[in-house]
Every structure is written in structure tokens, then in C-alpha cells.
Amino acid sequence: MGEPFPVLEEQILAPAPRSRLGVRRRDLDDLPVRRPGTTLVFDVDGAYRVRPVHGPLRPNEHHVVVATAVALVDMRPRTVEVEFPVASPDPAADFSARISFLCRVLDAAAVAQQGLSDLAPLLLGHLGQDQRMRWLATEFDATRMPEAARQVHRRIIAQLALAPPDIPGLAIQVVQVEIRMEGTGL
């Protein structure tokens, strides 16, 4: 796994202390450092809420003070690549498909609530729902592996066109499907 995406960081927050005047304030150093293109999502009474205002974060903002956890969510689109293994009749001729997905956060609160920090297992799980695809190449003998690879390529494109991955809070689009075979040029 590379850098986490879309949830870059999660933190449990201790209760915000009261000042000498009895006002609760949170030390902003307790929160993840915001990077360009990110937003903070606070767990407030079990509901995940994106910070409702723009501008500098203040230590006495209600959701900052009462939050029990915070997540840093990357809002910039990111390409996520997955490697999908395909079995052949001869294990030496096994190959894989590398699929690139462009992923963009639509709802930061939804992805924070799910704790989505690695999309690859979800995307691979979606591809794996088609068991026939994983074993399609076993129907071909070793001399016909390039043809098997083309069949797998077409099936992946068709599956993703008919049933694209649906992960709440994200827009996901297929960018590229590449078959990787040793020594065949595919």
C-alpha cells in the first residue's frame, strides 16, 4: 500500500479542556496538519461533519471543541492502480491486469465515516465478483494466451462499464486497463 487515500489520517481526540474562565478550547496542535487539497472531518456525537466554515481554524469552534475524533480527507482526484491476477492452465503463463481508476471524493464525511484509507482492496473485490473473469484464461491452452489476455481485457472493460465500482462518497472512473504478460508484449 502506498500513501493512504482518501482518508490520510485519523485521530481520537481527548475532551477539550476548559480555560480558567470555564470556556472549552482545543489546542489546534492536537489536530492533523491540513495539507493543500484536504479537509478536516469531525466526529461530533457520532455524526461525521465537515468543518462548516472556511478560513483559519479557531480553537473554540463548536465542532472542534466537542469532537471525539477527526479525520484528514484528501479532496484532490487520485489515480489508484490495482493488479488483478488471472490464472492460466500453466502457472508459468499466469498473467495479470493492471487497472487504473481515477477516484474523487464527493462526500468527505461519508469516506471518513467508512475509514477509507486504502481503496485497492475494495476495487479488487469489485473486480473479483466476476469469478468467470479470474478463471477465463484456463479455457485456453498455453499457445493461445495472447487470445486469452484479449478476452480478459474485453471482459474487464465490459464489467466496469456495466457495473462500475460504487463506493459511497466517491466518484470512480476507469482510466486504463492493461494486460501484463511476461514475454508476449501484451
Score class of each variant (00 low, 15 high):
73 V>H: 04
139 E>G: 15
167 I>C: 04
40 L>T: 03
182 E>Q: 13
44 V>A: 08
138 T>Q: 15
179 I>H: 02
35 R>S: 11
99 I>S: 00
183 G>F: 06
20 R>A: 15
4 P>G: 11
102 L>N: 12
99 I>G: 01
99 I>Y: 01
68 T>C: 02
173 Q>P: 00
186 L>N: 01
119 L>W: 00
20 R>D: 15
19 S>L: 14
162 L>D: 15
91 P>R: 08
69 A>W: 01
14 A>D: 12
163 A>W: 11
41 V>A: 12
145 M>H: 02
138 T>F: 04
176 Q>I: 00
75 M>F: 07
29 D>Q: 13
58 R>H: 12
117 S>R: 06
58 R>L: 13
80 V>I: 15
70 V>Q: 02
13 L>E: 07
78 R>K: 13
154 R>M: 09
148 A>Q: 05
58 R>G: 01
88 S>R: 07
163 A>D: 13
79 T>I: 14
70 V>D: 04
172 I>H: 02
39 T>R: 14
61 E>I: 02
61 E>T: 06
148 A>S: 08
6 P>N: 12
86 V>Y: 00
44 V>C: 14
80 V>K: 01
153 H>I: 02
67 A>E: 05
67 A>F: 05
148 A>L: 01
9 E>V: 06
134 R>L: 14
128 G>L: 08
169 G>W: 04
125 G>E: 03
138 T>G: 05
164 P>L: 06
103 C>P: 03
149 A>T: 05
81 E>I: 05
72 L>Y: 02
41 V>D: 09
98 R>C: 11
37 G>A: 09
10 E>W: 09
66 V>Y: 05
152 V>A: 13
158 A>P: 01
71 A>P: 10
64 V>A: 00
63 H>R: 08
132 R>L: 12
49 R>A: 11
84 F>R: 03
169 G>I: 07
71 A>L: 07
